[in-house]
Amino acid sequence: MDLVSKTQDVTTVKEAFIPPAASQIRQRGLREELLEKALYNTISQQVDEEFNPGPPPAEFISTTREDFKVPGFQSVPPSPSKEHDYKSEQAISFWSENHEKVQRVTAVKTRDTPFKRNSLFSTPIGQRLDDPVL
């Protein structure tokens, strides 16, 4: 007798019992199954809409229309202080006014056009003796 051995889980009834095979005959009609699936889908959609409502409708009102379109307001643009030629003049921006304060920018040769091409990168050092930046 082996006292350490495990007992087997198989009994005579478990060994002899064969579960019945599923019947190949349809127990419910195809239409009934489709109607049940459709009913489950509609109910699940209704429950989902009830517990997870969509976002509220967005209000598409621009700041201009909301804040600046006051009845009776007349917009009067200021008169120019001098004549400007947009084709030949350099545009004034934050960078054009503060180009001296910006770090890692190449030397500016002309004050009116600070962002034009600069040939200092490709000019040999021997030919740049007239450069006041060095």
Rank of each mutant, 00 (worst) to 15 (best):
K109D: 05
P80T: 07
N98H: 15
Q127T: 03
E50G: 10
K82Q: 11
N98I: 03
S81C: 05
R28E: 10
P124R: 08
D131F: 07
L134Q: 07
L34G: 04
A107D: 12
K116E: 15
V102W: 02
V102S: 09
L134Y: 14
P55Y: 03
E49D: 15
E89H: 03
Y86F: 13
E32C: 02
V105K: 08
T7M: 07
K82M: 08
Q103N: 13
I125F: 07
H99F: 10
Y40H: 06
A22G: 06
T7E: 12
N118M: 01
I43Y: 03
R128V: 03
G126V: 08
R31F: 08
N118V: 06
T7S: 13
P80E: 12
F115N: 00
K109T: 04
S81W: 05
A58W: 04
L120G: 12
A58R: 15
S44L: 11
T106D: 13
K87C: 07
Q45A: 10
T7K: 14
A91Q: 13
T110V: 14
Q46W: 07
S62A: 04
S79Y: 04
W95Y: 07
Q8P: 03
I61W: 02
Q8T: 14
N98G: 03
R28G: 01
V13N: 06
P19F: 02
T12E: 09
P57W: 01
S23E: 12
K69C: 03
V76L: 12
E97V: 10
K109A: 01
Q46F: 12
A22T: 05
T7P: 08
E59Q: 15
S122T: 14
V133E: 15
T12S: 10
M1F: 07
L3H: 07
V133C: 09
D85C: 15
T63A: 01
P77A: 06
V108K: 14
S93L: 02
L39Y: 06
E89F: 03
A107I: 06
E15S: 10
E49G: 06
F121N: 13
R111C: 02
R111A: 08
N98R: 13
G126A: 11
S23I: 04
I18T: 10
A21G: 05
A58S: 11
S44K: 13
Q127H: 11
S5Y: 02
S88E: 09
S88R: 09
F17N: 08
E32F: 06
P19R: 02
F51I: 15
A16T: 08
V10F: 04
F115R: 00
K116D: 15
P56C: 09
D85Y: 09
A38G: 03
T12W: 09
